[in-house]
């Protein structure tokens, strides 16, 4: 599914989080929103999800205006920075949640739900831990559960908000590669937010560099490195990449 963001502006009280942002995400693409804090990247992600309603502008899914569609009906998968797993439910129940809250008419029979959850557990390699509770899991495991939960409802797009932000360096690297390989398998349109440019460059097909509510530049990692279009991009990406040894 493709996503189109057209002239979106969003304000919180006296602060403008997004200034007239326009962006296209192609079907099957994995796009990173990269920028420092306050750049508006999380806000943009939440607008796509429907957790915020843009003050001005439109959001289109596959060319259809989805701006006014309620968050629960957009069929997006959202992975939160701190996982937001349901703390009183087991791993299995967490993943099954989206399938269980569907209305009677549309809900799958229990056996079918069980089967889907098993498939997802296999996908994220957590079969042994299905009866565990979130507080009994490591950070990396929790994030994988969050991912499985988001995928359970067969979303049209996957949105991830700093998915590896709360994990330590080693685990981050591992999960990063794993996410990329997952995407190669599943080919779902995905947008993820990060402030870590190594991460953005490693994982994403294209990177959207944002600053103070505006898009500075959109391009492949290669394009951004070789042809930065503004002093900000120059400083943020090129110069700091040069500084990091090896």
């Amino acid at each position: 599914m493709s996503i189109e963001i057209v002239h979106v502006t969003h304000r919180y009280a006296n602060f403008t989080a997004l200034h007239d942002v326009t962006l296209q995400v192609r079907t099957g693409e994995l796009v990173a929103l990269l920028g420092p804090s306050g750049s508006g990247k999380t806000t943009l992600l939440r607008v796509i999800a429907g957790l915020e309603h843009a003050d001005r502008g439109r959001v289109l899914f596959d060319g259809v205006d989805a701006t006014d569609i309620a968050v629960g009906e957009r069929r997006v998968g959202f992975v939160f920075q701190h996982y937001a797993l349901f703390r009183h439910m087991s791993v299995r129940e967490n993943i099954a949640f989206g399938l269980r809250v569907k209305s009677r008419k549309v809900r799958a029979p229990e056996a079918e739900i069980r089967r889907r959850v098993d498939d997802l557990l296999e996908l994220v390699q957590l079969q042994q831990l299905d009866e565990r509770y979130p507080h009994q899991l490591s950070g990396g495991q929790r994030q994988r559960v969050a991912l499985a939960r988001a995928l359970a409802i067969e979303p049209r797009v996957l949105l991830l908000d700093e998915p590896f932000g709360a994990l330590d360096a080693q685990v981050r690297k591992e999960l990063r590669l794993w996410l990329r390989s997952l995407h190669d398998r599943v080919h779902m349109t995905s947008v993820f937010v990060t402030h870590d440019q190594d991460e953005a460059f490693d994982v994403a097909d294209r990177v959207v560099v944002m600053n103070e509510g505006r898009i500075e530049q959109v391009g492949t990692p290669g394009e951004l490195t070789s042809r930065p279009s503004s002093p900000f991009v120059q400083r943020f990406i090129v110069d700091s990449r040069m500084r990091v040894p090896g």
Binding site: L51, G72, E73, A84, V101, K102, R149
Partner: peptide, 10 residues
């Protein structure tokens, strides 16, 4: 958690 539930369609 509430937001997560809403996004999942609850």
């Amino acid at each position: 958690e509430e937001e997560a539930a809403l996004v999942l369609g609850a």
